[in-house]
Design a protein around this nucleic acid. Structure first.
Length: 215
DNA sequence: ATCCCGAGGG
DNA sequence: CCCTCTGGAT
């Protein structure tokens, strides 16, 4: 099947079944989203949502988080992965927001990536959700599912390469939604260890299903 | 033993 | 390019 046809079917299916996908992270403003996304690295959204209410209540905005001690922040996030690194990142990030951006969340990839704990993936999530820009954040789910469905070639072996492969074939108006579609599919159907191929609506053109499951 | 919406450093 | 960080679920 041609690549163009793969993308067409992918978009068609999810437009039909998930017309308005959203992140499962809980947040009520851009600052909370940024904190939640930084915490979400190598950790499930469900766990972040368990600890974020107390964290946001204690540090409601960048100013209070910037003034906090790393030890106290650590005490709120000890149950997420890499709590030491993330506590340092959060305090450093909040200080950077206060010192360089007037406490506001910057709106460009380059500026966002200067914040401690914010890489390309996190920056693109913020740009997509907060500023409604057609950026494709490539995380572990997007990376894996894109390869399995044949939306990105296996030679695209870095997140940036997968990002470019996807951006070349997904119409701009579908890019923010496609990001969430790939994550939802990866989280609930196209699991990393034992994917639920039998209940996958896209298995008929899936390269992984063709190669691994049928053999 | 492997994975979860990665980032920073060597 | 590699390595480290490092809690909880499966």
């Amino acid at each position: 099947m041609q690549k163009k046809e793969r993308f067409r079917r992918f978009i068609e299916y999810f437009t039909e079944h998930y017309p308005d996908p959203k992140t499962e992270l809980h947040f009520s403003n851009p600052y909370e989203l940024l904190v939640a996304v930084i915490l979400s690295a190598q950790c499930t959204d469900k766990r972040i949502n368990q600890i974020s209410p107390a964290l946001f209540a204690r540090f409601p905005e960048a100013e209070s988080l910037a003034a906090a001690s790393v030890e106290e922040v650590f005490s709120y996030i000890r149950s997420v992965s890499y709590p030491n690194n993330k506590a340092k990142h959060l305090v450093g990030m909040a200080n950077a927001l206060m010192n360089r951006f007037g406490g506001e969340i910057p709106a460009t990839v380059d500026e966002l990536q200067t914040l401690p704990g914010v890489g390309r993936k996190t920056a693109h999530v913020i740009l997509s959700i907060v500023y409604n820009e057609p950026t494709m954040a490539v995380d572990t789910h997007v990376f894996r599912v894109s390869h399995r469905l044949g939306l990105a070639p296996l030679t695209a072996n870095t997140p940036l390469a997968v990002e470019k492969a996807l951006m070349a074939h997904i119409p701009k108006q579908h890019v923010p939604k496609a990001h969430h579609w790939l994550i939802l599919h990866g989280r609930y159907v196209c699991l990393a260890r034992s994917p639920k191929c039998e209940e996958c609506a896209l298995k008929e053109f899936c390269k992984y299903f063709e190669k691994v499951v049928r053999s």
